[in-house]
Nucleic acid binder design. Structure first.
Lengths: 198, 198, 198, 198
DNA sequence: TCCTAACCGAGACGGTACGTCACGTCTTTTT
DNA sequence: AAAAAGACGTGACGTACCGTCTCGGTTAGGA
């Protein structure tokens, strides 16, 4: 049973206005160039209405990232590690190439730094759960025997995601289909290697 | 021949005072917890004296990082890829474990995000030149025949640095000797793998 | 009908805190020795709260001057020009002698100088309206026949106020009861003079 | 006998460059809008060269005022109080109307305010000596019998100068020939008045 | 129909840091 | 010893956002 709390319910219209205004602003001005104040103004909404829903800009950005790059969309289960990786990474790169997803993610990463007692919530609730998709992908490959049994799934996931973040953060090289193929080939070749070595 | 510019030369004492004050403050309060104003006060120096030398906190932090993690110190040329990698990464991790180098680098990465027209200078002058050490290391391995001829050095460098940054930024797993060994082993095994594949 | 503007209304407590802190500081440190920052600190108020109400220190000082030397208090209507003048000027001098009114006014005058496109608002809103009291006093005298009909009220007002400012600004001679009597006698004697002259 | 001090003598060229640059800048940007730094730059001179000669901007301005409105030029001795006054004030107004003399004087007055322990030197060295010309003028009239014997020369001088300053500082009315005539007529009529009254 | 509670837009609040400006002094080399 | 040049420490400026608070007004359920 679901009982409604007393008082005026939160306005769905306001929430949507905030999200779409934020989406636009993050796209136009980047993460750091967008202030909560500006989002509220653009959405025609009071600042409190934003802070009532999200603890701060970062959490709003995280929600937004989830919305425009949904976990389900990047999952891939084609039967082979290489094609799974290529599919997932390519989809991801398409988002980064066209929309505010790229600035959003890099801003989100940046937000976690700085103050020593960083927003731990953000880390566990966002990064851990997002990287789960990658770990699942590698785990399925391991289960299929495409990776040696003793493979450290977390290590591979860090390698993969790290490389992508590196280019996202430094922007010294493009996140394009070639890079996706390179990544897929790199990890797909691990079995033979490790198998031979031992 | 070196001719001195006219006017009073910049005080080396002030510069050193700023650097050592900044080093201490970054260590104590982290990157985001340190303000230019606080550095100036702690160094007994006018704010202008800082802004005259560095365009902002990030550039000061970059200089500081160079000073405490000098390129020369992390270079390794032992004759084999695996031991080179392990030596370099281990040295790096020692710096991150004990001093302000870790917060400094993560703050530096974070600073580059945000405003869309990010400080490009910082990127090219700092990140590109720092990663050169890694690329050189891989290149020497390739020259020795430890990597297939067609190997993309930049790609390997991004993988390596990306993985380290990933852990530095998210702090979900330690930057320890085990991780260093794992990284060294991963890249050292590439030749056999690639050799077989083709 | 008076409708209240939307949003949180300006805090009267803050405003009063600013005014009383400013009054104290202007008295203690003089006009030039008082900074907006110090006023904000002393009032326990954000700087923005001051800038939201007044465009700058000068406007705050003008409001303060109005408060401590209210127009109503210096008006005098005793029936004769000489006693009116003596009453008004004496009252004024008492304020200058004891409180921050003197430094406040001289600071205010000084502020208007300097940049060529001086704060015109300050001039018309403050000086013009303050000098109206003096012009009214002379005008009543003229209406009573104590001054020749063709007398230029503005000219007399400038002479009177100018002499007072002169001593206020240069501080070469006191603003005391003798000077007040001298001034009153000077202007009261004009009718006979002008009457004779023509 | 005159012995020259040791070392390089002060450059007259520099001094002239400073004066003419200052003259131009005060005219263009007003008193407050002109900084010592800007004067030095415009004169192609080091800041120290200025501070070596004048204790600050105000003293330089005072020298400049003396130079462009020389005491000798505004003195008048025509034989009658009214024409003396009219001549002196008219000459003065011509300077204020065309050059930087007006802004210079008002800036100079402003400078004396602010800090409670005002530059006393400036007051006595500049204002007292400038106003001497006016007092001399009135004294000659008194000696000629154009003013009652008991007349307070300083009081009249304050009235005259105050009225002029008033208009200079507030700029609510022009400093023109009409005003000059009005002033001259006002003071010239005093004898009859005072003579009758007593 | 009123009451209570939580929402709403708006914008003021106390803070903190920013990066700039001008001050008057100090430190170079050159004259 | 004065010159030009320009860096120095100081301290205030006015602006920008932060996240919270306080208005009048709105929108629901329960009395």
């Amino acid at each position: 049973m679901h009982i409604r709390p007393p008082g005026r319910p939160r306005s769905q219209r306001s929430e949507e206005a905030v999200l779409s205004a934020a989406l636009r602003l993050f796209g136009e001005k980047g993460y750091g160039g967008t202030t909560v104040e500006a989002i509220a103004r653009a959405a025609g909404v009071g600042k409190q209405t934003i802070y009532r829903r999200w603890p701060g800009k970062a959490y709003l950005a995280a929600d937004l990232y989830e919305a425009i790059v949904p976990r389900g969309e990047i999952e891939a289960d084609t039967g082979s590690l290489q094609s799974d990786l290529e599919a997932m990474v390519t989809t991801l790169f398409q988002h980064y190439a066209q929309g505010p997803a790229g600035p959003l993610l890099s801003g989100l990463i940046a937000e976690g730094q700085g103050d020593l007692e960083a927003p731990e919530t953000l880390r566990s609730a966002f990064f851990d759960s997002r990287s789960q998709t990658t770990r699942d992908l590698f785990q399925r490959a391991a289960d299929r025997g495409e990776l040696p049994g003793e493979t450290d799934i977390g290590f591979l996931s860090d390698l993969l995601i790290g490389a992508i973040w590196m280019r996202l953060l430094v922007r010294h090289a493009p996140l394009d289909r070639d890079f996706a193929r390179q990544l897929a080939a790199h990890f797909a070749a691990l079995y033979l290697q490790e198998g031979e070595v031992r």
